[in-house]
């Protein structure tokens, strides 16, 4: 039951929520509406005048091969990041779930990457894979593989995917581990008595029971890869080589701040906003459904 609180005066409740509302207006509603408005304008080449063009910017975007290519690339990138980091985190969590001694140390180490800022995490991977100085480049060279993500688009994509996935592993690990540990131990024991070995128990009991968490993390990771990998990409490849790692957020930045196509860039950000909103709706609608033990 929710408790109802009765306020004596009518202004107090408003005063209490005012700071929240103010912050939301200043940092979200206002810029968002600016972007919406901006996306309906076209500026001339010198930025002196602008013309209201309705949805021309959007129509142009969806006719633009480059934009659609970026869209595809972003989807590939996001799902690769989500899949890679979740698969890795799931493996680690499954192992940690069975570890008893030293479990806390193990967990603490695994949580560290999450505390690292995306740009720093990017810088770390740049150092390790630097075509001339990097330790991995050197090792790969010794094994006969010539690594240069500054020239090879595929390698560049691989690198930003790995760097982004690495950043998310800790977060996913924590959620997976918490989900696994909330499964009553007797369920696993019952399955063991029923004759299921460790692999079978994992696939037929644990995986289905943590599926709400998996779904939740799927959405979170896709959102992360879509929007929060800007820092990593900026530090590692700047969207290159030849736009091979330019994903949607990076294109907004490139077109808007480098290319100065403000209307087109704003239209792109409005599309991104719609994607976020729909992902959030999916999140709320389906993740709330819990498994009952």
């Amino acid at each position: 039951m929710l408790k109802r609180v009765h306020f004596g005066s009518s202004w107090l409740p408003f005063a209490l929520v005012a700071p929240q509302i103010l912050i939301t207006v200043v940092f979200f509603i206002w810029p968002a509406s600016q972007a919406l408005y901006q996306s309906l304008l076209v500026e001339d080449a010198f930025g002196l005048s602008s013309e209201f063009v309705w949805f021309d910017n959007f129509i142009e975007l969806f006719g633009d091969e480059h934009y659609l290519g970026t869209f595809q690339r972003t989807i590939f990138f996001s799902f690769s990041v989500a899949f890679l980091s979740m698969a890795f985190a799931l493996t680690l969590a499954a192992m940690a779930d069975r570890v008893i001694k030293g479990a806390t140390t193990y967990r603490t180490f695994l949580i560290w990457p999450y505390a690292v800022a995306p740009v720093v995490s990017g810088a770390l991977w740049v150092f390790m894979f630097d075509p001339t100085l990097g330790i991995f480049t050197y090792t790969l060279g010794a094994l006969g593989y010539e690594w240069n993500h500054k020239l090879n688009g595929g390698e560049a994509m691989f690198l930003v995917i790995v760097a982004s996935a690495w950043k998310q592993v800790a977060y996913n690990f924590l959620f997976f581990l918490a989900a696994m540990q909330s499964i009553p131990k007797s369920l696993i024991e019952a399955a063991a008595i029923d004759g299921a070995g460790p692999t079978r128990r994992f696939t037929s009991i644990i995986l289905p029971l943590i599926s709400p968490t998996t779904f939740f993390l799927m959405v979170i990771n896709v959102v992360f890869a879509f929007f929060e990998t800007f820092g990593i990409i900026h530090a590692v490849t700047q969207g290159g080589p030849a736009k091979a790692t330019e994903i949607l957020v990076y294109k907004v930045f490139n077109d808007g701040f480098i290319g100065l196509d403000l209307g087109g860039s704003a239209a792109q950000s409005v599309i991104l906003m719609l994607i976020v909103i729909s992902l959030t709706v999916i999140q709320f609608r389906y993740v709330e459904k819990k498994v009952e033990y």
Binding site: S186, A190, A191, P208, V291, E292
Partner: peptide, 20 residues
């Protein structure tokens, strides 16, 4: 021997039914 090899069945206090 593993539980599975002992040819036993167990009823748990919380029943431990597979919820899914």
């Amino acid at each position: 021997l593993e539980p599975a090899e002992r040819d036993i069945a167990m009823v748990f206090q919380n029943y431990a039914l597979y919820p899914h």
